[in-house]
Simulated scan of single mutants.
Amino acid sequence: MSQNSRNKNLLLSTPYLFQRQLSDFLCLETRLMLRKCSKRCQSLVDSMPLTLDFLAIKASDYVNIKYSESKIHTEDEYVSSYIAVLFPCVQCGDWNISYSEKLGSLLAIFLKHLKSLISSLPHQINVQHFSLGGNLLTPEDYCDVLSCLKSEKLESISLFGERTGDSFDKIAHLEQIKRVSTIDIRHAVDRVPLNMLSNTPNYLINVRNISEPEFIRIVEQHLQRDNFEMGRIAVGKDEMEPWITDFLVKNAAVNEDDGSMTATLEGPKFKNTVNVDDEWIVFRRMI
């Protein structure tokens, strides 16, 4: 950019500190438009902290990204944008193998560039609520994307798509997982990812089965953490019989009007309740 062009560029002619503070007032769409002005503008925009209220990435038969951010000077309204990469799932059952292979290859290339774009930013992304999933994502993809988020700003993480317990073990060590206050695991997993939930105040998980030792570990360890608030586990009660009924009877559980049973659990530090019905186990901290 020539000196004359620079002098005419209001943004680049302002003090650097002002340029950085300006990022608080620019929506993502405006930033993307500024990046096209020049290489200096692109570099400046990329160096600005990126703050989003919500960010979701789904990669299955197609890839889509959804985000929302607060409007300027408005706290109770949101601007939402939806970006769909045009790799739609073929609805008919007559798949063409070569087309399927090409589609998978294109999706893999897109995911590679998406991860490269996110990781190339000179800062972590400030996002409050984050959602990630899809059968195209590997455990390494989860680690790569989650590590690009600023852990201090995260309030909730939602994970979906078929995953194994080993997959969750690989992301349990991430600071983003350790510090977030709410974790939702939407697809059923084979076992409770206890290591991943070891420091989470609120969680919701779907499991195909829960063993008695896992249940006891939650009661004796997780429920006695200082920061625990509520844990919800979706699991069929039939999968836990007869030991779950024996546990409830032993702890003087009472029958609720909805047919569930609630027991009060006295611990060395805190008192909690456990409510069990045909489909859910709900742990709550008593105030």
Rank of each mutant, 00 (worst) to 15 (best):
M286Y: 09
R232M: 05
I118F: 12
M240L: 10
D258E: 02
D166H: 09
V180G: 02
K102H: 15
V235G: 02
D184S: 07
Q224K: 13
C89P: 02
F168M: 14
G236W: 13
L107R: 12
K250H: 05
D226K: 11
P15G: 05
I125L: 03
R6F: 12
P122K: 02
L223V: 00
A172P: 06
P15S: 02
V85P: 09
H73S: 10
L111A: 05
K178Y: 07
K8D: 11
R191A: 13
V219A: 00
V249E: 14
K66C: 01
C27D: 12
R285D: 03
L44G: 00
I244S: 10
G267A: 04
N126V: 08
I244R: 01
L50W: 10
E239S: 15
S43E: 15
Q128L: 10
L223Y: 03
L137F: 07
L117V: 06
K250L: 03
D190L: 12
S81G: 12
L111T: 00
N206C: 13
I171C: 02
M240G: 04
V249Y: 11
G93D: 14
R232N: 07
M230D: 04
T200L: 06
D46L: 01
R191Q: 13
S100Y: 08
I57P: 01
L149D: 01
Y16L: 13
